[in-house]
């Protein structure tokens, strides 16, 4: 299964405090472990929300909101995408991560939807749409 492991933002990450040499080193080693275990697909760090934007939807209306955003703990400062056997494996690997922030911090693991999750319920419409897409592709 594929999971996204999110590094939640903290006051430090939101202020753009760069990680210490020790942390960079520990993180480098940890990333190497993930690669060697064959579970790492991708991963990166994100700049503080002060450099981000939000698009708010309300019916047909769209408004753009500039960062920074409040609720620091709900923001994401970085992520990995892993391929693991189950959530238990993801949890064990996440526990091995060096604390990514100078202070208390959190990782959040969220599994991706897989085809099997949609099951029977979504099949007819989705299948029809895909069939149409296929037909369109053939016509073009």
């Amino acid at each position: 299964m594929r999971v996204m492991v999110m590094v939640k933002a903290t006051k430090d990450s939101e202020q753009g405090v760069m990680p210490s040499t020790e942390l960079l080193e520990a993180m480098g080693k940890y990333n190497e472990e993930l690669v060697k275990a064959g579970i790492m697909l991708s991963g990166d760090g994100l700049k503080p929300s002060s450099q981000g934007k939000r698009i708010a939807f309300d019916g047909p209306k769209r408004s753009v909101i500039d960062g920074p955003f409040a609720e620091t703990r709900e923001l994401v400062a970085g992520y990995w995408i892993w391929e693991v056997r189950d959530m238990a494996e993801a949890v064990e690997w996440a526990k091995r991560c060096p604390n990514p922030m100078p202070g208390p911090s959190e990782l959040e693991i969220r599994p991706f939807y897989e085809m099997a999750d949609f099951g029977e319920a979504a099949t007819p419409e989705i299948a029809e749409r895909f069939d149409r897409l296929r037909e369109d592709a053939k016509k073009r």
Binding site: K36, A37, G38, I39, M40, E83
Partner: peptide
């Protein structure tokens, strides 16, 4: 398929 890809990634690691 996933196991094989994981083995493939482990292999390039070593």
């Amino acid at each position: 398929c996933g196991e094989a890809r994981r083995l493939g990634r482990i292999l390039i690691g070593v």
